[in-house]
Amino acid sequence: MLNVERLTKTYLSAGAPLTVLKEVSFSLSAGDSLAIVGPSGSGKTTLLGLCAGLDRPSAGVVTLAGEEIGRMSEDERARVRNEHVGFVFQNFQLIPTLTALENVQVPLELRGWSGRATEAEGLLERVGLGARRDHYPVQLSGGEQQRVALARAFVNSPKILFCDEPTGNLDGDTAHAMTDLIFEMNRERGATLVLVTHDIELARQCRRLLRLKAGMVVEDLRADEPETKAVHP
């Protein structure tokens, strides 16, 4: 489902090149789940962005759902995202001028769909917000907003779901409930899950864990392997 080979990202910072990700490689099968962890500035979000086709690598190859997205134009990558990818962001990223239901519908509408919002309504029911469908983001609590974002992430039946610190802005209980919901829905829909988090409890629920440090993978742990595999000493 997702294959990453020798992925490198270099930015120009104050005129000098700054490599934030160095030759990262891994691959995920359909239905897998991967947690990317590491300290701030270790390159987690950059890796997520590259895997999801939000940015282009400086070197290396990213293949998503059988398509090599690293060489695609921005519009082609947008199509791939619309067809295969779902997102959940740390700060929810709901569009403030749209109601909860409209926010969930956007990915469908981008495909040219128009009609009764059965699928979107069903997903809002599923996340427990059927009664709040006409509310605007500002009228919802943080947990509720994140649940709307989760419904939106699944509305186009994505093959892969990317979550960037999905519980980072939520309190303990709400974060716990949110984590359960993400994994439940992921199981129900058989999507591949890639999440970036600082929360080690959340990370341990994934079948695989990549630990980054200074842009490099320093640990690649799989749930079926009892020993930690150190990629780089």
Binding site: A52, D75, E83, V85, I95, P96, V106, P107
Partner: peptide
């Protein structure tokens, strides 16, 4: 800008 970025993430092309 944030709204545009979200639309882009959800699959909207640059011109759309």
């Amino acid at each position: 800008i944030a709204t545009v970025a979200v639309l882009r993430c959800l699959g909207a092309g640059a011109w759309k």
